[in-house]
Design a protein around this nucleic acid. Structure first.
Lengths: 134, 134
DNA sequence: TGTATTTTGTAATGTTATTACATTGGTTGT
DNA sequence: ACAACCAATGTAATAACATTACAAAATACA
């Protein structure tokens, strides 16, 4: 189930909008979708997104300046799986989310060796999904 | 040496500005640095950056919306090393660039298995460098 | 109830990136 | 040399993404 805990009204609206979407959305696209629900200003969206990101219910795609609902519907899954990687289809917009411990290990190894303290790791593949590449 | 092939005047100016900098710069920061050299508009910077990115002389940091000179001073090195990863210090701004074939292999493996055709891969660690973490 | 905290509303502004169109300057072929 | 062409540049306007600042309402809770 996509239901979530203790979300405020705006947070729920944004989260539901992202769950309905089949591709990432920018904050302004979300804003437009929620005009009918009383949204008037970008900040309403950004505030909700901040909270949803913090809860791990939503991910930000840095290379797209946009946002997707976490595809793992159990709550706060991502905490348990290390870094999340994304494969983003440039053609249809579909996003696949995956985890890879071997990659995590390599990045951690590099960081440990260099004394770098990583707070947040971004891995994004841009390209064509199997359907669109065919 | 940081000299590069066949760059136009604007391209050279932007490339040199990035080489002088000890941290990533946004296009607008570059623009400000080059006002005295006759730059008046963002497009002048973006056009030069497009070319430099294409040549592999410069990298874009997606999570920062900014740009760094490639740290491998031999020309078009990056072609030979697979995906470039970046570790970005949130405190001092320093960026370390590295390559890891094991990571490349894992990502390629995932992509092959899923039929995903990756065009461009982004790997960025945000955190604190050893000096700043100490 | 009264007070504190969080959430929301609204406006303004700041930052990043692109589109459209005009001009310049060099190259090529005759 | 000249015209035709093409790449690079200049300039203005606008689009797209994000934050700051401040006020008001809703909620929690002593």
């Amino acid at each position: 189930m996509n239901t979530a805990p203790n979300l405020t009204k705006n947070q729920s609206l944004v989260f539901e909008a992202l769950n309905r979407a089949d591709a990432p959305m920018s904050a302004y696209t979300i804003l437009d979708k929620l005009r009918d629900n009383g949204f008037r200003a970008p900040l309403q969206v950004y505030r909700a997104l901040d909270k949803l990101l913090e809860l791990g219910l939503v991910h930000r795609l840095e290379s797209l300046n946009s946002f997707v609902a976490c595809s793992h519907k159990e709550q706060s899954c991502c905490r348990h799986h290390g870094t999340v990687a994304f494969a983003i289809c440039e053609s249809c917009g579909q996003v696949s989310e995956f985890h890879d411990h071997a990659i995590d290990d390599r990045l951690e190894g590099w960081a440990r060796q260099k004394g770098f303290k990583a707070e947040k790791t971004t891995i994004e593949l841009r390209g064509l999904c199997s359907a669109c590449a065919a």
